[in-house]
């Protein structure tokens, strides 16, 4: 038996919004410690990993590990039926072929229950190696979203170069070139830790997809190391995260 209750549907809506542009379907792995999910996009260039610890939920019960194969489009449709400030309870019986979502209005005067058919997804699990990133940058999530949007105007590829002087995003194409550089701020909105400078090239459209998670977090963490996938991490309060990994582009 699995049961998890969140005080607000809004965060769940935001989490699904952050996933659904990369994935159509995905399996939530629920255990007594919380919920995890990881999947690559169809082209195997990016990976998204979600972790929500049980402390994130108002109520959490999971007697036995259970995997819930979900169609994210269908889940979005159900979430559209709810108000952001409704409480939501997700329930599934052991070996169930459906999941139940119940919404309760803030004043408790309205309840609505929906059933979603579960999918039997054959999903492979990947081992994500622990990586020591040579450069770790924290910046406001809205700033990162803005930079990705502005870079997309100029080119498909974005070069991210990080050194002690700052982090620089560059794009150049037929129209011209764009360079945006952020330095560390004394107030701590932007922090930059660098062991060794790194410069890597990435497909901008994936970066833009990651910024779908912007409403979830104030700050985004970016991890860079030579010849390994970029890490873009959005914390979910103190109880979890959405991490995106993106493989670099290399010169022929």
């Amino acid at each position: 038996m699995f049961e998890a209750r969140l005080a607000s549907t809004l965060t769940l809506k935001r989490i699904v919004d952050a996933l659904r542009e990369i994935l159509n379907q995905s399996t939530l792995d629920c255990s007594d410690t919380g919920i995890q999910m990881q999947a690559m996009d169809n082209s195997h260039v990016s990976l998204v990993s979600l972790c929500l610890r049980k402390e994130y939920f108002e109520k959490y019960k999971c007697n036995r590990n259970i995997s819930l194969g979900l169609d994210l489009k269908s889940l979005t449709k159900v979430l559209k039926c709810a108000n952001g400030d409704d409480a939501v309870t997700i329930k599934a019986a052991d070996k169930a072929d459906k999941v139940e979502l119940s919404f309760e209005s803030a004043g408790k005067e309205r309840t609505a229950d929906y059933e979603l058919r579960l999918l039997n997804l054959d999903q492979e699990h990947l081992a994500i190696p622990e990586t020591e990133y040579n450069c770790v940058v924290h910046m406001p999530a809205t700033e990162f979203a803005r930079i990705c949007r502005d870079m997309a105007t100029f080119s498909e590829s974005v070069v991210i170069a990080c050194s002690k002087e700052g982090i620089k995003f560059s794009a150049s194409g037929e129209m011209g070139a764009a360079n945006i550089k952020l330095s560390e701020t004394t107030k701590g909105e932007v922090s930059i830790q660098v062991d060794e400078p790194v410069a890597l090239s990435f497909a901008g459209r994936y970066l833009s997809t990651f910024t779908r998670a912007t409403p979830l977090a104030e700050k985004v963490k970016i991890g860079l190391a030579p010849d390994v996938p970029l890490l873009v991490e959005y914390p979910i309060e103190d109880y979890g995260y959405i991490r995106y990994y993106l493989a670099p582009k290399v010169d022929d």
Binding site: M40, S43, H44, V45, S46, L47, E124, H125, L126, A127, I128, P129, S157, S201, A203, V228, P229, Y245, A247, P248, K249, V250, D251, D252
Partner: peptide, 14 residues
């Protein structure tokens, strides 16, 4: 020209 690397070479199937 640049080539897009795939993630499969970094993250191994468990």
């Amino acid at each position: 020209a640049q080539t897009q690397v795939r993630l499969d070479s970094f993250f191994k199937t468990m």
